[in-house]
Amino acid sequence: MAGASIVVIALIFVFVFYKAAPVIGASGVGLALSGGFDTQVSKAFYAPAGSPTPAFGMLGLIAGTALSCGISTLCASVMGIGAAVTVCEFCGRRGAAFFIAVVRLLAAIPSVVFGLIGLIVVVPLVERLFITVDMQIEYLDYFQMTGRNLLSSVVVLSFMIAPTVVSLSADAIAAVPDSLRETGYAFGMGHFRVIWKIVLPSARPGVIAGVLLGAGRGTGEAIAVSMVCGGIGVIPSAGFGLMNLLAPTLPLSAAIINKSEAMGSGHVAGALFSCAALLLVLGALFSLTARVVSRGFGPGGSGGGIKA
């Protein structure tokens, strides 16, 4: 029974890649290097039965995953590390217990609720604050500018990822031995300087593991993002500048949800399984890297406290 995980993970790889194989075969490297996923899906959906597997291009989706996950991991790390420092260093035993409960609650809020709040609160807010009719007209040729866009996805995702960062960072910070802090104090360093120059560098492996696992959660998060992302895999362009943030996006995971209704077509199903295959590889990479980072730390350090 202890081998169940091995069997299951092997089955997942086999079945996902088996289902994805026709589309990967038909698309070749174009799968990762070209766009047009949305039209390809609707074309494939209406294609007559028995037609050959069409090529798909997921560049827009990959860019969507990279951007939404990358930016929100960055935001979540900045916020999460700060929060972890507060929990461990500034607010005493009771305050720490309270804030840890808050972080756990935030982590336990289901992603569909995050999506709902995003849809009812964040999307209208982003639309009102950043988007004008003039802008909508200006970009009409490229994409439809609404509140459902990359920025909204980033806002929602950041708060979904942050609890993971806080949890692991706080564990790592708490595991830094007091003797290292005392070294700093003995040099006449103030409390925050000790945290900044000694505690955080010593806790780095755990903090990085937290960020990586957070990024993993961000890549895989499907429902909430699918509700606020706009559902179109626009390929970002340098010419849009910051407007890229206001363009609709469609990360790989959200694409699986958004296009699931077209899965009656075997080709569309194959395309979605290709997304899943890519996500599978990404997810495995993130968790393996997190594992290597948190374990590959020399003796005497503070690699402790990393539990995930």
């Binding site: 202890a2 081998g3 995980s5 091995i6 299951v8 993970i9 089955l11 997942i12 079945f15 996902v16 088996y18 289902k19 696992l213 993993g216 890549t219 895989g220 998060e221 499907a222 995971s253 699986i256 949800i257 899965m263 979605l272 399984f273 899943a276 996500l279 599978l280 997810g283 495995a284 993130f286 968790s287 393996l288 997190a290 594992r291 995930a308």
Partner: peptide, 25 residues
């Protein structure tokens, strides 16, 4: 190592991928 690695990788598989896997099997 294999068992531990399998557990770690499984933990990193997005739920939406597990969902599609269930459709396929």
């Amino acid at each position: 190592t294999l068992v531990e690695t399998a557990v770690d990788i499984l933990a990193g598989v997005p739920t939406v991928v597990i969902a599609l896997f269930s459709l396929s099997i």
